[in-house]
């Protein structure tokens, strides 16, 4: 079942066309990798799906709802969670409060959010820092916190913007393991530059360049696609 379907999306910022007539879809429980060189429009696509800004053309359907013109907070409540390229914790709040701030989405049901927060803190190994101010944490911890914060929504779709950036080898491996546990319950779109680490865990991959899709398929296909290799000339490739 497709939970997200975007058609004909485009977005321009005075003179720059960041996203050009794009179609993208995500299935239930699917882990979709979104790759492409810098400036390809990946974060812009995220912002369009999450609702940070609205598209100039096109339509976005999520779980049967037309969210094209829906404000960001409503999309979050429908079940779209996201993390940011540069972490954005609530520095004025404690670690626990960062999680409690989330408004439970429709999917969450009657679950006690304090219990859920505590459980998530356990999964990301931050229970010991629950009462500390978020401003005191390291980058690796903040990245995990941001994922947990998005998960408080019990989202059906999770948008991860370069979750591995800035993490050590071990931290990356741990986070990837954690992401794989989400398989089946939550769909994920993950933007990553570290293709070598990220591609293997994806069910499907989409490659963007200059605002458009240049490849869309299974990881093996993508690896061998000449268009992709061309776009990535000079970058790490299999």
């Amino acid at each position: 079942m497709t939970i997200l379907r975007a058609k004909g999306l485009s977005k321009r910022f005075t003179g720059v066309v960041a996203v050009k007539d794009m179609d993208v879809s995500v299935g239930d429980g699917e882990l979709l990798g979104l790759f492409g060189p810098n400036g390809a429009g990946k974060t812009t696509l995220f912002n369009l799906i999450a609702g940070t800004f609205f598209a100039n053309t096109g339509q976005i359907d999520f779980m049967g709802h037309d969210v094209t013109r829906m404000p960001a907070f409503r999309r979050a409540r429908l079940g779209i969670g996201r993390t940011f390229q540069v972490v954005r914790p609530f520095r004025a709040l404690t670690v626990m409060e960062n999680l409690l701030a989330a408004v439970p989405s429709m999917a969450a049901g009657k679950r006690n959010d304090a219990d859920l927060a505590w459980e998530l803190l356990g999964k990301i190994d931050l229970q010991c820092r629950a009462r500390d101010s978020a401003g005191d944490l390291t980058l690796g911890m903040l990245k995990r916190l941001e994922v947990a914060r998005a998960l408080m929504l019990s989202p059906r779709l999770l948008l991860l913007d370069e979750p591995l950036a800035g993490l050590t080898g071990k931290e990356s491996a741990d986070l990837l393991l954690f992401l794989q546990t989400l398989r089946g319950q939550t769909s994920v779109i993950m933007v990553e530059h570290n293709v070598r680490l990220a591609l293997p865990i994806c069910d499907r991959a989409v490659v963007m360049d200059a605002g458009a899709v240049i490849a869309d398929g299974a990881p093996d296909q993508i690896r061998r696609s000449p268009a992709v290799i061309r776009a990535y000339l000079g970058e790490d490739q299999e």
């Binding site: 940070t52 404000p71 960001a72 907070f73 954005r88 439970p104 914060r149 408080m152 929504l153």
Partner: peptide, 14 residues
């Protein structure tokens, strides 16, 4: 306080 800290990130969590 979440809004005061970062209004955009706050919207992202509903």
């Amino acid at each position: 306080l979440a809004i005061k800290s970062d209004e955009s990130a706050a919207a992202a969590i509903g």
